[in-house]
């Protein structure tokens, strides 16, 4: 393991400046570190400088016009503890509380999860299903990119070397669900994960799947089989069949390709069944 020094700039501008100064590969931002530290240990990344984001004012959870925006360095534990997240974004709540253990979620962040872009990420499917959008902070200011466009492969994103994810913005609340299957139900990585969301305004569904290669992805062909808030069983069955047929699964140590196909079909059926309007907002 190569050594590095660690600093914690006080502002996003200072982090970006340090990234630019170090050049590509010379510096790495650090959020919770629960994934990055493995790469540092193994030497898969070997920056001379690690830039902790802990002093940035991004540990936030905001509601704008009733919609959620999550600061990229907010610990996941704070997100799951918010009662409104639980009722208004049930699929997101379910996904977040299934990332690692409680102690891991005291440090792990949503920004880190998206930037690290692990193929087995349990958060990216629900971000895809909810059509989350990233606010990226760079030397030229901000730009916005959907998670679907941001995550381009296994451990590959559209993030520029001198950019940071500032926040993750969700559209207004809508019914959503997250279902998973694991070798060990508790505290494991999913073999297959399915996230679904229904948009009442345009009566459309989004279906996303994780456990596929090279990255979690949307399944628009499956979603097209679903219409309205309560699709009939036959339509759900078609969506499940399409999802099973279209998901780019491979066999690995967690499951075989054919078992994943079997799983995705039942998980799509379950997730659609759980995608129900939230109860009325409490005061």
């Amino acid at each position: 393991m190569a050594t590095f020094d660690l600093s914690a700039p006080e502002s996003p501008e200072a982090v970006v400046a340090a990234l630019r100064a170090a050049g590509p590969g010379g510096a790495t931002p650090l959020a919770g570190g629960t994934d990055l530290l493995f790469d540092l240990d193994e030497g898969r990344v070997a920056p001379a400088h690690v830039l902790s984001l802990r002093r940035l004012p991004w540990r936030t959870l905001d509601w704008v016009a009733g919609a959620l925006t999550v600061g990229s360095t907010l610990p996941l534990r704070a997100l799951e503890d918010d009662p409104q997240v639980r009722t208004l974004y049930p699929g997101l709540y379910e996904a977040v509380r299934n990332v690692g253990s409680v102690a891991l979620r005291q440090r792990a962040t949503m920004g880190g999860n998206v930037v690290r872009s692990a193929p087995a990420s349990d958060l990216i499917p629900i971000l895809l299903a909810l059509d989350a959008e990233l606010d990226l902070f760079g030397p030229q200011g901000s730009r916005r990119l959907s998670v679907d466009r941001f995550v381009i492969g296994s451990r590959r994103t559209e993030l520029r070397p001198d950019e940071l994810v500032r926040s993750i913005r969700f559209p207004e609340p809508r019914p959503s669900a997250f279902c998973w299957q694991r070798v060990r139900p508790s505290n494991d990585i999913s073999q297959v994960a399915v996230a679904t969301a229904y948009s009442p305004s345009d009566r459309t569904w989004r279906v996303a799947v994780g456990g596929v290669q090279p990255r979690p992805r949307l399944l628009p062909e499956a979603a097209r089989e679903l219409t309205g808030p309560d699709p009939p069983p036959a339509a759900v069955g078609r969506a499940a069949a399409v999802a099973a047929a279209r998901s780019p699964f491979v066999s690995d140590r967690r499951a075989s390709e054919e078992y994943r196909r079997r799983l995705v079909a039942s998980l799509v059926e379950r997730a659609v069944g759980l995608t129900r309007p939230a109860p009325p907002r409490s005061a």
Partner: peptide, 13 residues
């Protein structure tokens, strides 16, 4: 005050 995995925490952080 928060339970934290000290194996995944950099002292400098």
């Amino acid at each position: 005050g928060r339970a934290t995995l000290s194996c995944l925490t950099l002292t400098h952080d």
